[in-house]
Design a protein around this nucleic acid. Structure first.
Lengths: 141, 141
DNA sequence: ATATTAAAAGACTTATTTGTCTTTTAATGG
DNA sequence: CCATTAAAAGACAAATAAGTCTTTTAATAT
């Protein structure tokens, strides 16, 4: 479904949503250790997210990564798009070049219905809402 | 979602379901040309499917690949399992080692519903039923 | 039997993804 | 201003997926 980069990105953003803010930034090391993912690989992913303005970063002592109000009120779908591109959700399940309601592949109906569900959730739920649920239900990242 | 091998495999099996039977076998070349996929790559995939008894094959002149009654009454899920393995449907969307209803990742509820739908369809619909629909609705492969 | 046909098997190359390491740039505190 | 800290940038390396090519094996028809 998602590439590893994308999975790491989602988890990192949610981690930042729960643990960071303007006044308490977090370094790559802490995030990588907490999520148990390769540090340098995660660093590149965070750079990319920062470049796409999905997270904020500051260099130097007491620097690190964090989410602003704007970031935390966005939806996760942007993170997915920036890592795996928009085809993730729109491309045909069987890899056919043309596949739509007009011209459906044999699995189009099923794929469409169920993918719409995930897209809807990812689009209409803010990162903040997700973060709140993570804290409330003590979910693991 | 699926690897390319798996996509090619599904399409090839459906192609065989529509066009082949015990008395009219089909060669790799014809399938590869029809589906517009790399011939030698598809050959390896068909070999693997044959080894797993998901399709039948006969060597020599008038040989080729085909589906028996048994094959055509099976479900597509076996094809997916044989190409991409069972983790495809069971593993966590975020790649967490433990993720279940007891111990859900932040996207577990959404992901679960989505995937169960596709699994259900792939499990409870026979290849024959799919093939009939493909012919009836003139769907592309 | 033997020549022909087509799948099976296996070696190999290429591309992509994932992961590592080093150097550079920018912010901060002394 | 300068040492320190941490992200940014970029060069590599490893692992996996995708694709190609050649040789071997088995079935068939002449």
């Amino acid at each position: 479904m998602f590439s590893k980069s994308c999975k790491y990105a989602i988890r990192a953003v949610l981690y930042l949503a729960v643990h960071s803010d303007e006044s308490s930034k977090i370094g790559v090391k802490e995030i990588a250790d907490s999520l148990e993912v390769p540090k340098h690989f995660l660093a590149k992913i965070l750079q990319q997210l920062a470049k796409h303005n999905l997270i904020a970063s500051i260099k130097g002592p007491s620097g690190g990564f964090f989410l602003t109000e704007t970031h935390i009120n966005a939806s996760l779908i942007q993170v997915v798009y920036s890592m795996d591109g928009p085809e993730m959700f729109s491309s045909c399940l069987l890899g056919l070049p043309v596949c739509s309601s007009d011209n459906p592949c044999p699995l189009h109906v099923q794929a469409f219905a169920y993918r719409e569900g995930i897209i809807y959730q990812m689009k209409h739920q803010t990162i903040k809402e997700l973060a709140n649920r993570i804290e409330r239900e003590e979910l693991k990242l």
